[in-house]
Amino acid sequence: MIGLNWYLAASAILYSIGLYCLATKRNLIKMIIGVEILLNAAHLNFIALSTTTAGLDPLARTYVIVSIGVGAGVIALALSLTLLVYRHYRTLDVRKMRRLKW
């Protein structure tokens, strides 16, 4: 039996971990993992805040359901693009993919 704050804190820390991952990791797969952690943090926040004594807010839950679906689509697309990038550059290091830069 712990309070709302614990969950909010957990979601905040998850969110920071996601950002941290995006900021420091060079591997594309790792960056996608970071994106997923960010998504999970937001979901946890939604669910925790919608669980009140006044009742469960159904709208928040349906938003999370939709968001899970869309997030999965985004990640799948990112992964397939990663694969193509890997075939092209033979590496997953974002710092070596510089051909886009002029």
Partner: peptide, 12 residues
């Protein structure tokens, strides 16, 4: 414009 995603992320 270094083309380095990490810098973009740090700016974000």
């Amino acid at each position: 414009h270094t083309g380095d995603l990490n810098y973009n992320m740090i700016a974000a």
